[in-house]
Computed example of a mutant assay.
Amino acid sequence: MDAVKSIFQSVFRSRSKPRFQRLSWIRTSWRSVVNDHPIVRRSWNTLFWLPTAIVFTDFFFVVKQVAGPSMQPTLNPNSSQWRDIVLFDRYHVKVEPRYERGDIIAVWSPSDPSKLFIKRIIALAGDVVKTLPPYPDLQVCVPEGHVWVEGDERFNSDDSNVFGPVPLALIDAKLLYIIFPFDRIGPVSSRITVRDDLPKGPAWRNEMAAIERQQWRDSRVTKRSE
């Protein structure tokens, strides 16, 4: 820091020098300080890349850690001792939003704008969906510009059965990929299909259970929009 201070002191003492000569001297001195002082170099690199990082996470992709059990067993399963770390896509949500039943999204709570939830889209605009308690009506036609979202762990989730259909404007991002823990790393699809090559065992049983949950969710959408 003493080196930085001496640079600025020298600049003020050298006002009599030609303007371009002073600027050239400042650039040369600053490069010397950055190269010779690791703390200054790291701070400068951080400041240099910070705007790029902000733009990247605001408009393209963002990494989030999943908290809570509401999306079990898809995310944060009981079999894992780690919280899932996942990659979300913000770009397509902002530029060309297209959603399918089964998509997992990050969505701001309609009842508390400070809370960001991770939920699954159950029904799209125009769909008629059978609700679950504590929702007061037995079924709902999802209005235009909204989706119906729920957690995979339906007995431990604040979702549309609590606050109703969610406006599309509250969707923050769409889940793409699990990046940690490493034994579960991979893309996250909106639809699960049976794999014939999967041998019977724990993984096969988990996949069959996931397909049964998917079929149960599908059965609750009694009328589908085109």
Rank of each mutant, 00 (worst) to 15 (best):
V107F: 05
Q81T: 13
E153V: 01
H92K: 08
P110D: 07
H146E: 10
S79D: 12
D127V: 07
P113Y: 01
K119F: 10
E96S: 14
E144F: 12
P165C: 05
L116H: 06
H92C: 05
P167F: 13
F155K: 14
E150G: 11
W108I: 04
G151N: 08
P143M: 02
A125F: 02
P133F: 03
T131P: 13
F88N: 07
V63W: 01
V149L: 12
I85P: 07
E100I: 03
C141I: 12
V129L: 01
A67V: 14
P133Q: 03
W82Q: 14
V107M: 03
S160P: 12
S79N: 03
G151H: 09
Y135R: 04
P133C: 01
D84N: 15
D127K: 00
A106Q: 06
H146A: 03
R154M: 11
E96D: 14
F155I: 12
V162Y: 10
V129Q: 06
C141T: 15
I104L: 09
D84W: 07
V93W: 10
H92A: 06
Q65W: 01
Q81Y: 06
R120M: 12
A106S: 15
D172P: 02
P97G: 08
I121Q: 03
A106D: 00
K115W: 08
V162G: 00
L138D: 14
I122N: 07
D112G: 02
R83F: 10
D84V: 06
D152M: 12
L75W: 03
V86T: 10
S111V: 11
V86R: 11
D158C: 07
D89M: 04
G164S: 09
S80G: 03
A125Q: 06
P113V: 00
P110M: 05
V66W: 05
Y91L: 15
V149R: 05
V62F: 06
L124N: 04
V149K: 07
P73A: 12
V107H: 05
N76K: 13
I171F: 12
A173V: 05
V166M: 03
G102D: 07
Y99C: 00
V128H: 02
S109I: 02
Q139H: 09
L75M: 10
D172Q: 14
D89G: 06
D127S: 06
V107D: 00
D89F: 07
D152T: 12
V95G: 00
E153A: 14
P133Y: 03
P113I: 00
V107N: 01
I85W: 09
A169T: 14
V95S: 05
V140L: 03
I118V: 15
S114R: 12
W82E: 14
P136G: 01
I122Y: 10
F163K: 05
L87Y: 08
F117K: 09
D103P: 07
D172R: 14
P136F: 02
S157V: 06
F117N: 13
Y99V: 00
N76T: 09
R83A: 08
V66G: 04
P143E: 03
F163T: 08
V149C: 15
V129H: 03
M71D: 00
R98I: 10
P69E: 04
G68K: 09
L138F: 11
I118N: 02
Q65D: 00
A67G: 09
F163R: 01
N156R: 05
I171H: 10
R101K: 11
S79L: 11
F155E: 14
W148L: 05
K94C: 02
F163D: 04
K115Q: 13
I171T: 12
K94V: 06
E100T: 06
L87W: 09
E150D: 07
R120G: 11
